[in-house]
Design a protein around this nucleic acid. Structure first.
Length: 284
DNA sequence: CTTGCGTCCTGCTCGC
DNA sequence: TGCGAGCAGGACGCAA
């Protein structure tokens, strides 16, 4: 589930807990979730690559990927896939090991703070961790094909990205090369809020449509970030709390329920190969 | 260039 | 109550 808002909410919490702290050790419980700098799943993994004895100097995000950079320039690009999450807690506190925990970092607390444990957990394993050896390596290799951040898009830039595409607008919004960060939930939410049908060909949108769509993408994502994202099932913030934006959904998951605008029943079907919910009357 | 499909996985929900 | 089918936030690769 993690789309941009979920990952950004995770990033903000992580910044508070782990930024500027030093990694003491790492345990790899499932090495095939990690891709080394050659993109291989079974290459050698070394402590320095995973940040041991290094200070965490940046916690960033690009689209749906979380980025942790250490003070020697190496770092991790974490993709959460469908079911991935990052958990951070007090290392001293004993508790049962969560199932599907693939990596665990122990992070020093410094003079007056407690030692932390940060874990990567991903039951379905659609997610994974890509190692990079420098910020340039990260941008050129791991994050190469990502479009501009969805939070920053405006109507003009969106129009340029769509060009004369005949693809359904929803398919285009889901394409990370066009726009980075939108997934199935926020595609439906943004299109509903902009009053645009998901199956409409991208080239059919005029300037005004594009402005409305770009604006609804930005505001929908902002509100979702502030709510900690949407927790349908798996998404959790690092401290274990859930995102509450689900209560604010106007489209996603509301099939058969009344449209919040015209009160008629919301439609659903498959668009761009994904389950899609929209209002037949309010979206044109 | 497109779309449409299957694939990678686990686990939850629904209908019989 | 039990069991299997279907479906899920994502992203690839392949065939047509």
């Amino acid at each position: 589930m993690p789309e941009l808002p979920e990952v950004e909410a995770i990033r903000r919490q992580l910044t508070v807990s782990i930024l500027d702290r030093t990694v003491e050790r790492v345990r790899v419980h499932r090495r095939d979730v990690v891709r080394d700098t050659h993109g291989r799943r079974r290459g050698r993994l070394t402590d320095p690559q995973l940040g041991v004895d290094r200070r965490i100097r940046r916690v960033d995000r690009r689209g749906k990927q979380l980025i942790i950079e250490f003070d020697h320039g190496q770092g991790l690009v974490i993709r959460l896939g469908m079911s991935g999450r990052i958990e951070v807690g007090d290392a001293g506190r004993r508790r049962s090991v969560p199932p599907h925990r693939h990596l665990a970092w122990t992070i020093a607390g410094g003079s007056s703070r407690s030692t932390l444990r940060m874990e990567f957990i991903d039951p379905r394993r659609f997610g994974g961790i890509h190692l990079f050896k420098s910020p340039e390596d990260r941008d050129q290799r791991v994050l190469r094909n990502l479009g501009p951040e969805a939070t920053l898009i405006d109507g003009k830039a969106l129009g340029e990205r769509l060009k004369a595409s005949r693809r359904a607008i929803k398919a285009v919004l889901l394409d990370q090369q066009v726009l980075a960060g939108i997934g199935n939930i926020y595609a439906d939410e943004s299109l509903f809020r902009a009053g645009i049908r998901p199956e409409r060909p991208a080239f059919d949108l005029n300037e005004q449509d594009l402005e409305r769509l770009a604006a609804s993408i930005r505001t929908t994502l902002e509100h979702a970030i502030d709510a900690g994202g949407t927790t349908l099932r798996d998404h959790r913030l690092p401290d274990g709390s859930a995102g509450t934006f689900g209560a604010g959904h106007l489209a996603y998951g509301r099939s058969g329920q009344p449209c919040t605008h015209c009160r008629k029943s919301m439609n659903s079907g498959i668009v761009a190969g994904r389950s899609t919910t929209w209002c037949e009357f309010c979206q044109r």
